[in-house]
Design a protein around this nucleic acid. Sequence first.
DNA 1: ATGCTCAACGACTCGGCAGC
DNA 2: GCTGCCGAGTCGTTGAGCAT
Length: 488
Amino acid sequence: MRLSKSQFIRGLQCPKSLWLYKYKPELRQEPDESLQAIFESGKEVGELAQKLFPNGVTISYDPTKLYENAKKTTALIKSGIETIYEATFLYDDVLVMVDILHKGVNGWELYEVKSSTKENEVYLNDIAIQYFVVNGSGLQLANAFLIYINNQYVRHGDLDIQSLFTISPQTPIAIQKQESIVIELQRLKEVVKNDSSEPGRDIGLYCYNPYECDFKTYCWKDIPSESVFSLYFMGKQKMFDFYKRGIISFKQIKSEVELTAIQEMQVESALSGKVFINKEGISEFLSSITEPIGYLDFETFYSPIPHFNNQKPYQQIPFQYSLHVQKEDDLHHYEFLAQHGKDPRKEFIENLINNANDAKTVLVYNISFERRILNELIQSHPEYEQEINLIIGKLVDLLVVFKRGYYYSRKMNGSFSIKKVLPALVHGFAYDDLEISDGGMAMNAYKGLENISNISDIVKVGNNLLEYCKLDTLAMVKIHETLKQSTT
DNA sequence: ATGCTCAACGACTCGGCAGC
DNA sequence: GCTGCCGAGTCGTTGAGCAT
């Protein structure tokens, strides 16, 4: 029974998920669409890192030609080639592909490339299993390294890949892990030996850690949507403590568990249908808002590889905003969507400064995001510092109303994201029927424009983006309206 | 993946008190 | 005056939840 490197890693998290992956792959849940861009950027990073060791030969991946690829790798090594990308090895029924295999002064070295910005245990296990297989198959490794993104790098002019990447030696830890690799491998092979013996395993912290499992919906099918696991701000460890004691449903929770104020409302409203409204709290919040009111929302995109000057890895670049301005009975809508392919920041700022000028209060949902983007714009464009600071000073966070528990309805089910709050407070508004229905999709759509050449398709994507972003600020207008009404 | 915020949590300090 | 214990208060860290 052969295992791939990624299956081994998966098995370390949960043996049952490995078994399901092998024998019941149809039970895998759909990957989160908003993470798609990150997933794809991994490839981009891998190819860029190859330039650190130029002039290598690539072994192209083909699942039907694994033995052939392994042979090809051996032949290339014998032929005197010093750098191989995706070098393929098979040993003890485990298949690994080494991102970069390079012959250094002391001998062969393996390099594992990650688009992450810090080291983590999973990557070290990843390196350790590769080390095991490569050594086992007969190529003595002198060293093993982890290559990852240095997020302190700021791009000026051409991309400086030496500064963009951190190369971190991991040889001692790889050697130290060899013993446990052998044991784990034995254990995992045992698990997948038999296709009829699905391992019994209860849900646990490992369903989230280090990654959320692809089979979570399958293993969690009996957990109701309103349960100890949906309680607001309940720590994961604590959730499972209750779960193990048999406390799962809201009814059980009510009689057994001490709750925070918001959790209390959550349980109470689920059991009785009651909507909690704290009029004094809401009134006090509303008094901090002065007309004309701006309702503002940004869309941004990012990538591990900085594309523009004065950009760091993963730094989010704003490319779009929507701004509703309410003055007495007049609601005016402003919007901005950058042309794709060039640095949108300067244009973005200038338009925003113009449009937001009138507003005395600027409402946002989750202030930390918009404030951070604005502060980063000051960093990259200090000539606008004063005007941007003026906007920052006007920001008020609508999310705070809900975080403080001033308004709670069962429909929120322990979440105060605007996608949950809007339908709970306002009828007839929902994100469901939009082409683009969350920020991640917006980012993907904008990034995807580089692959579209057909003008009418580009216009269509642009319109979808504008429609989505507009709904986000309109949602804030409506939520604000509902809050005002709720105090009378 | 980043970064911000806030609540929760654990570690720690400190005062009060009993017991010797 | 020393010790140990308890609860209350403080402080720094952790982690959940939000945005993209």
